[in-house]
């Protein structure tokens, strides 16, 4: 395993499983050609990662009346990677009021993505 930032521009590390294969990518519009994959999941991962990279986002929002000043929250599903910083900026300004239930929506439709932001715990 080499993680010393020596990936070539056309390589990505697959995280579909913990193995971490280095996949070679060639992209042509919506077509993604993946080589050097360890398994089929890698091909699927690479395609998504190139065309529409998404991440689960977990952060906190301010809460009043809780045992702590911050409430942990997370996106209900993977969120478009390019818009993560915008989402964080929005959540930084968000304040909620205790009591909150785990799983409760803090945002219904974050930045028009249709993705909800949920409370990670009761507080």
């Amino acid at each position: 395993m080499n993680t010393q930032n020596d990936l070539k521009p056309d390589q990505i590390i697959c995280v579909a499983c913990p193995k971490g294969c280095r996949l070679n990518i060639q992209q042509d519009g919506d077509q993604v050609l993946v080589t050097n994959e360890g398994c089929k999941r890698g091909v699927e991962y690479a395609r998504r990662e190139i065309l529409d990279p998404r991440r689960m986002v977990a952060t906190t929002v301010r809460i009043s009346g809780g045992i702590h000043p911050l409430l942990p929250v997370y996106t209900a599903e993977p969120f478009p990677k390019a818009r993560i910083m915008d989402l964080l900026a929005l959540l930084r300004k968000t304040q909620v009021q205790s009591p909150i239930q785990e799983g409760q929506s803090i945002l219904q439709d974050a930045l028009g993505t249709g993705i909800a932001v949920l409370a990670s715990r009761d507080m």
Binding site: M56, A58, T59, P72, Y74, E102, G103, S120, R121, D122
Partner: peptide, 24 residues
């Protein structure tokens, strides 16, 4: 409770939960 990142519960719940939700 302080591990607010995701990655918990994939084996048991087949769900990618943050630490506090797993604890909850």
């Amino acid at each position: 409770l302080q591990c607010i990142h995701n990655g918990f519960g994939v084996e048991i719940f087949k769900q990618d939960l943050p630490g506090p939700a797993y604890a909850q």
